[in-house]
Amino acid sequence: MLSDTSRPVVEATLPVVGANIGEIAKRFYSHMFAEKPELLDGLFNRGNQADGRQQQALAGSVAAFASFLVNKPGELPDHLLARISHKHVSLGLRPEQYKVVHDHLMWAIVDVLGEAVTPEVAAAWDEVYWLMANALINQERAMYAAADVDPDSVWATWRVVERIQETADVVTFVVERTDGSAASPALPGQYVSLKALMPDGVHQPRQYSLTRADDGRHRQFAVKRVHGRTTPDGEVSNLLHAAVQVGDELVLSAPFGEVVLKDTGRPVVFASAGIGITPMAGMISHLAQASATRPVTLLHADKSEEAFAVRDQVRADLAKLPGASLSTWFSAAAGLEAANQFSGAMDLSAVDLPADAEYYLCGPLGFMQAIRSALIERGVAAQDIQYEVFGPDLWQADVQ
């Protein structure tokens, strides 16, 4: 909660800070990396930096947090903080690195707003930052402890034991620990960070959803290749597709991710598009492994049947679940509609949805926005809709 001294200052300056937060974030990252280039080695995704997504996500997060402090005193945006914390611990972020971020962010605020940043304004926004930072530090400390890791031991070396060409653009990697130790259990829907050594000697992190329930020894994840771009966006996926074979070693984090399947027994509906099938595949695999009896519905949109990644595994797992159903929409299948198979974009009016269901969404941002809006219009409570964003969260629907 903001102090009585800072709250009116933040409330008065939030419009101008909010209007300039994008430029503040841009200058913050530029200044920080000029001073601390080592942060680009294994911690920050330079692809997200290059296309501006990380700057947008930071700007949105800070503005959303400050708005919460002003408009909902005594509350915190738990969903926002959880998303950030899970990403941070999957990268081995350390508490002391928040001071580095603080110094460069406050520099950027002054650099952009100039004389408008009086000592009182600077002190108020300093308080905003540390309220957010300390909330994240506390969450992350608890998450490290729960996973029985620290920022160093969060990483482990795994060996590729199987490589599956799912589609022309998607490869599944099955890996096992090189030291023979058991894998810490992953929750259904979680991801791991992968730290790849690039040809220029810089390590780059990416997150990949686990597509199958753990068996105690192996992990499995699928990687979609980003075409036409090798540096910086798509550089890791292209490297994995081109160079990583059975017997090669990969550095992976412990599993994290806040969008996990709830064990409520209620009907569950998964709606995915493209490579967004991967966390859904992981959740469905957990349900099949547990011989779950809750009603399961999978709705998936893709370019074609051939582009539908991990489809064989998903169909096999759904077949193990009593009454489970799959409906697909293929944009390249016009005129080829059959039972539970449609052409064009996903249309929820074409299928029956179970009452009192929980929903999980993953896919391109526009797809998730459209499906979530359609569900809200049908009377589904916002709290019953969870979504997974690949990369920085530029939507933050659950903090609005």
Rank of each mutant, 00 (worst) to 15 (best):
V246Y: 04
F367L: 01
I277E: 04
A66D: 01
V296L: 07
L194E: 08
E96Q: 10
G234R: 00
G391W: 01
S3H: 00
V246W: 02
A374I: 05
R141N: 14
L93M: 15
K303A: 15
A145F: 08
A168H: 11
G247A: 07
V9A: 06
H203T: 12
A307L: 12
M198A: 13
M198C: 07
D179I: 00
D103N: 15
L194I: 07
G234M: 00
V171T: 13
D215A: 06
A281V: 04
V171M: 07
T293P: 01
G282M: 07
M198E: 12
N238K: 09
A332P: 09
A350M: 10
Y208G: 06
P354I: 06
L91H: 04
T167M: 08
V10T: 03
A382W: 09
A290N: 11
A145H: 13
L40I: 11
Q97C: 04
Y98D: 03
G22K: 07
A156T: 03
A271G: 10
P295F: 00
G189Y: 01
S331E: 09
E377Q: 11
E120P: 10
F390V: 06
Y208H: 10
D111T: 10
E96T: 09
L210A: 04
A59C: 08
A57M: 03
A108S: 10
F33R: 07
A182S: 11
F342Y: 14
K262L: 12
G60F: 05
V9T: 09
L131K: 04
G247Q: 06
K26S: 12
V70C: 03
E388N: 09
A108G: 03
A316S: 14
S291M: 07
Y359R: 00
D356G: 10
Y208F: 14
M368C: 00
